[in-house]
Nucleic acid binder design. Structure first.
Length: 199
DNA sequence: TGGCTGATGCGA
DNA sequence: CGCATCAGCCAA
């Protein structure tokens, strides 16, 4: 069942980051449906998080979608190469987001392998935010899309992840964020071989 | 361990 | 405008 807006609009981006583990991210692009189970996320606490683009309620052309009500996508280009896919959460004007970092491919495997130019299904197909976007065909054309629509959406397929199955650790690549750099807001499914490499 | 790659956002 | 910066990936 597709997650509805009430899932995204809760006032707890850390909980949403954990709740997204075990959910399924789908895209339908040029008629091809691809998807996988979310195994790794990072939460960004908006205005009070120095690692977030929206720290201090900074508003720019790029961050504007973060101020929309929860339930839309936020896709931005990182290091000039990688499209990174995020989910916007909370109510209007509260710019919080969850970065989806890794999925286990489950639907449309042939298409995913073709997009990634791989022949074998393993971690390096979608185990990292840049690879994940490429695998599912996500680019900046998919910025600001409604996640209850039929291009990019997330489903609950009744996979239950308990608190004990969740690994917490500091987020990746946010050394510049000073006191927020160490917050353990990166979540992975314990024991999954599909997450980006452990540190 | 570096090189690649280019939009972004800041200051001049 | 210019220019430093960046929520990564891959080959070695």
């Amino acid at each position: 069942m597709k997650l509805d807006l009430s899932f995204y609009r809760r006032d707890d981006v850390l909980q949403i980051g954990k709740d997204l583990l075990g959910k399924y991210l789908f895209t339908k692009i040029n008629g091809e449906i691809t998807g996988g189970m979310i195994v790794e996320t990072e939460s960004y606490m908006g205005a009070v998080d120095k690692a977030a683009h929206s720290y201090g309620n900074r508003r720019t052309e790029r961050t504007e979608v973060m101020y929309q009500p929860g339930g839309v996508s936020y896709v931005f280009l990182c290091y000039g190469i990688h499209s990174l896919f995020n989910v916007i959460t909370n109510e209007k004007d509260i710019p919080e987001a969850v970065l989806i970092r890794a999925v286990k491919p489950t639907h449309g495997i042939d298409t995913i392998l073709r997009r990634r130019n791989k022949t074998k299904l393993q971690r390096n197909v979608a185990g990292g935010p840049g690879m994940l976007s490429q695998a599912l065909g996500i680019d900046r054309n998919h910025d600001g899309l409604n996640l209850t629509g039929d291009t990019v959406w997330i489903e609950d397929l009744d996979v239950k992840i308990s608190e004990n199955d969740i690994l917490r650790s500091p987020r990746v690549g946010v050394d510049y964020a000073q006191e927020d750099a160490d917050n353990p807001w990166r979540y992975r499914i314990k024991g999954s071989e599909w997450t980006s490499p452990a540190k």
